[in-house]
């Protein structure tokens, strides 16, 4: 507060992930009167993770609507109001519950532009929260891999406050349905944000750390696990290129291909299941372009994610497993 004003303007903002979400939503709601916010506890409560603090007070009950516990109707109403010209952001508390909203999201919204030959679209964002944090088998899942196979549906997964902000802004401007997934463990994490308004475009991965020995792809909370592993491996002389996918559909194939062409090896990391997982898609798309390369995949074990802390930790990949997998990939 005591520093010079000129210096203050150039200094980046330091925000928690949840604050970055709120900032993006507030800016977009101010910018476009068609943007709406709806979902369970998004009103005066400010969101389950306080990620909508202040939004209700600023924009009021017409544009910020608490919904009853009714995910199918919440997603369906969002799809309908989107088709009618609005840009709703509908919030599904846990990604597990998004399964209840699949009909409107997948059968209607994702197909609306196609079936109407371009006349109608459903520009809607479903924001939902994935990941394990001690809440048990139906409150912990990462089902983004199910979603990336749906034609017409965009899927994004920020790992930093800056991307939470920039991807939310892109999502609210996208002319079709978007699933924006965050992670329970990310909300209390801080990060720097450019002071100037900006967006993070879909289909652009971020190289979080450059490296030469192996490419490590990841998204959401697993980016933090990947960076932790990469740091440890650097001490062993293994140089890891960590790529944060950010946008799962569309994927940034160019960045992925360029990295694997350079490193010649690939580890795909995700918190969800490896079977038909994001990693399988990433690897396949890369190998279609450059031919096969040594590849390992890491994800949850093929079991439900228990609230039991011992079983939960065993199920979900950690930095130690990433380190071990990369050692095997690089040293054979």
């Amino acid at each position: 507060m005591s520093s010079e004003p000129a210096q203050q303007e150039t200094k980046p903002l330091r925000l928690f992930f949840r604050e970055a979400v709120a900032r993006a939503v507030r800016e977009e709601m101010a910018r476009d009167p068609k943007v709406l916010l709806m979902g369970q506890d998004v009103g005066s409560f400010g969101g389950s993770y306080r990620e909508f603090d202040g939004v209700y007070g600023e924009f009021g009950p017409d544009r910020v609507r608490d919904t009853p516990v009714a995910e199918p109707a919440s997603v369906g109403i969002a799809a309908g109001v989107a088709a009618a010209g609005f840009r709703p952001l509908t919030v599904i508390t846990y990604m597990d519950f998004l399964m209840l909203g699949f009909d409107a999201l997948i059968n209607y919204a994702a197909k609306l532009r196609y079936k109407s030959a371009g006349k109608l679209t459903a520009p809607m964002v479903v924001k939902t929260t994935a990941g394990a944090q001690g809440q048990g088998v139906a409150h912990s899942q990462c089902i983004e891999a199910w979603l990336i196979s749906v034609p017409g549906l965009a899927v994004v997964a920020p790992s930093t406050p800056a991307d939470a902000y920039g991807l939310m802004k892109s999502a609210l401007r996208h002319d079709g349905p978007v699933v924006y997934m965050d992670h329970k463990k990310l909300f209390p994490t801080p990060g720097n944000l450019d002071r100037e308004e900006h967006v993070v475009p879909f289909g652009k991965a971020a190289i979080r750390q450059e490296g030469t020995d192996v490419t490590l792809t990841c998204h959401s909370y697993m980016v933090r696990v990947a960076l932790q592993a990469a740091e440890a491996l650097a001490e062993e002389g293994i140089s890891v290129e960590v790529i944060d996918l950010r946008s799962l559909a569309p994927l940034d194939i160019d960045t992925l291909v360029a990295s694997v062409e350079k490193t010649g090896k690939l580890l795909t990391l995700e918190e969800g299941q490896v079977t038909c997982g994001v990693g399988v898609e990433v690897a396949t798309r890369i190998f279609e372009a450059v031919g096969y390369r040594p590849w390992k995949r890491l994800g949850a074990l093929p079991a439900p994610v228990s609230s039991n802390p011992v079983l939960e930790a065993e199920c979900i990949p950690d930095a130690e497993q990433v380190i071990e997998s990369i050692r095997v990939l690089v040293r054979g």
Partner: peptide
């Protein structure tokens, strides 16, 4: 499923 969509269109009308 169509019933939920219709409610969304109706919400747009109301707003």
């Amino acid at each position: 499923g169509n019933i939920t969509i219709a409610a969304g269109v109706a919400l747009g009308r109301k707003l």
